[in-house]
Amino acid sequence: MKKYLNIIVIGILAMTFLSCKKESFNYPPGTVGISKITYFPIITMKGEKYFIVAKGGTFTDPGATAKVGTDDSPVVVSGSVNTSVAGVYAVTYSAENADGFSATATRQVIVYDTQPDAAARDFSGKYLRASNSVASNWKKIGPGVYLVANPGGAPGADGIIVVAVNPTGSVISIPPQNTDSGAWASKDESYNLAGNTYSWVVVNAGYGPALRVFVKQI
């Protein structure tokens, strides 16, 4: 009986030793255990995300770089800019890794055609939508060119940013544009300079046809 007990004790000690043995983490490059590591592309745009150029001017694309892990990756550029026509143009940079995973980044190029009266004006500020008191913020970034955060005055939509323009007088609009949050435009726009209010219908797949009225906070 003592012999069998000794055998059992030795077996338990052997199992304990094996279970305490440290696992080797010296995996082949690009793996963890039996799993392969996938590095997703990371794109870095050179220059500004919003590039402003006067109608008839010159646009030179600053370009972008891409990395997959520590390795450089080719960048594919799509989209074109016509500086003879005012508008908002999208230049998109994309890259793909060996496993087919891709990433994109988009630059907005604004070609403006702004008259002196509008160029001297500044609509920047905080506006509250009349129906729900949700804020929309305007920031001037060029002559008659603005970035508008939460253009529809919708709760929880502060991260949505579009380009709006004021080409002359009190005329405002969201020119047709493609952004990270989809396609945008506006219609039925008006700005009341005396009352510091404006209204427009936001044209986007996530918004209805209601006229949205905003009041500037002085």
Rank of each mutant, 00 (worst) to 15 (best):
I7D: 08
D61G: 02
K46S: 11
A64T: 04
K187Q: 15
A119V: 07
A90Y: 07
K126G: 03
A66W: 12
R121G: 05
S199I: 04
K36N: 14
I52D: 02
T44Q: 09
G87P: 02
A14F: 08
I110F: 08
G30K: 10
I42G: 00
V202D: 09
A86E: 14
N150I: 12
P28Y: 14
N26R: 12
D117C: 09
E23P: 01
G87W: 07
N150W: 01
D117R: 02
P41A: 08
Y112A: 06
K187W: 00
Q177D: 11
L193Q: 09
E23N: 12
G208W: 01
A185G: 12
E189G: 06
V162E: 01
A194N: 13
Q108L: 15
I42A: 14
A118F: 02
V171S: 13
N192K: 08
T179F: 11
T31N: 03
K216W: 04
I161G: 03
P62M: 13
V81W: 11
Y89H: 05
V53N: 14
K187F: 05
T106M: 15
A86Q: 14
I43A: 08
G11L: 09
S78A: 15
F51S: 12
A149Y: 08
N82M: 08
V111Q: 06
N150Q: 02
S181V: 08
N196R: 07
S35K: 09
A103V: 06
T92F: 04
A194Q: 11
F17I: 14
Q115W: 01
I174A: 01
S190C: 04
G47P: 04
G69R: 00
L128M: 10
A157R: 01
Y39H: 14
A185F: 00
A90G: 06
N137G: 07
V213H: 12
D188P: 03
V85T: 14
G33K: 04
Y4M: 10
K21G: 11
N137A: 11
